[in-house]
Design a binder for these strands. Structure first.
Length: 358
DNA sequence: GAAGCGTGGGG
DNA sequence: TCCCCAAGCTT
């Protein structure tokens, strides 16, 4: 493995970055550690385009770490639609720990940072290098791809051991501390805009074009090598949009697992026919007044695929104790994940009509 | 070490 | 339509 290629890239990469750095809201000078932290968490497994709006809104709601530590339901609401909701919960846990353990600031060592929930290897490196100018690598998917190509390395980058080795090679290629924030961001920008995944990267624009080992070997588009991921399982579910004079029924999901703690429309396993659905309602102690319509919807998660049959119907506001009958204003406060977006639209449409006619 | 955890955009 | 995936972390 020719890791000297990585070192060779450092200087031209930093020059490239001076001209080609993307303009991003969290790239202020000087960097604010709280802002860097929030942006890095939001960017985990999430595209820049999706993060922009959320980032701006989040900082309006929670301008400082102390504000975040105090936030409650509004925090999850701010995260609604962004996905991987444990990130938001961990953000708040970490903020509270920072208030208690670190005097209300983010700590400035790798050990202390990674001791906070939601901050791992990559995020700690990003905060330390970008906000505090420390000489620490921040190796994400972009950097792994870039490194695999410049070294023409065909080892499986989904293997944790290979990643660790890559990280130590990147560490050796780091510039002096004061340039490490730029270096780490430059690696990611280059990966995101030039050394693209999926097919042919734009090698002519790359500061490593003259010595990239994969390019010399003509292998740039077949690298990096990643283990195939396993498929999704399919789940059938039947979802109820129950509409009463008090609003639509929502309930809280369990505190662990998929979409933990978020609000959902009552639903059961299986693709139920209307008679079977009616039996479920009876079980819940709900008397249907009128069946409005049936809706088919699909939602694809990383590891599960939900095929949903939805029943919209009018009823009395009875049912299990955990049903919460929500009007338009309640919906504005409750975090309902995108998986139920189709049903939320349906509910809101009916609620508006109802409120309009009163 | 592998699996669980969301969503939206692009080829 | 389907598949790939995007600035990972936790258990």
């Amino acid at each position: 493995m020719d890791q000297s290629k990585l070192k060779q890239l450092t200087a031209p990469l930093l020059s490239w970055y001076e001209q080609n750095a993307r303009k991003l809201p969290w790239r202020e000078t000087p960097a604010n550690a709280y802002h860097v932290w929030i942006s890095e968490i939001m960017l985990q497994q999430t595209r820049v385009a999706a993060v922009r709006e959320y980032y701006a809104r989040f900082l309006r709601e929670f301008p400082t770490l102390a504000d975040l530590a105090r936030g409650e339901e509004r925090l999850m609401k701010c995260w609604e639609g962004l996905g991987y909701y444990s990130r938001a919960r961990n953000l708040q846990k970490a903020a509270r720990q920072a208030m208690e353990r670190f005097g209300g600031e983010l700590p400035r060592t790798y050990e202390d940072l990674t001791s906070l929930p939601g901050i791992g290897d990559y995020t700690a490196g990003a905060i330390l290098s970008i906000a505090w100018g420390q000489r620490v690598p921040a190796v994400d998917g972009n950097v792994l791809r870039l490194a695999a190509r410049i070294m023409d390395c065909d080892e499986d980058i989904s293997d944790i051991k290979v990643r660790r080795r890559f990280r130590s090679w990147v560490e050796e290629a780091l510039p002096p501390a004061e340039r490490c924030g730029d270096y780490n961001q430059a690696m990611m920008d280059l990966g995101a805009t030039v050394c693209l995944p999926n097919g042919e990267p734009m090698c002519l624009l790359c500061p490593g074009r003259d010595f990239c080992a994969a390019r010399e070997a003509g292998r740039q588009s077949s690298l990096p090598v990643k283990a195939p991921k396993k498929g999704r399982r399919l789940e059938e579910r039947t979802v109820f949009v129950l509409l009463s004079s008090q609003g639509a029924a929502l309930r809280r999901r369990p505190e662990t697992g998929l979409l933990a703690g978020l609000w959902e429309f009552p639903n059961v396993e299986g693709a139920l026919r209307e008679e079977e659905a009616a039996r479920v309602l009876k079980c819940w102690g709900i008397e249907p007044l009128r069946w409005e319509k049936r809706i088919a919807a699909k939602h694809i998660f990383t590891h599960v695929e939900w095929h949903m049959t939805g029943y919209v119907l009018l009823c009395q506001p009875s049912g299990p104790a955990d049903f919460c009958w929500s009007d338009g204003r309640d919906f504005a406060d409750k975090t309902v994940p995108t998986a139920f977006a189709r049903f939320r639209e349906e509910a809101l449409e009916h609620l508006e009509r109802q409120e309009g006619s009163e």
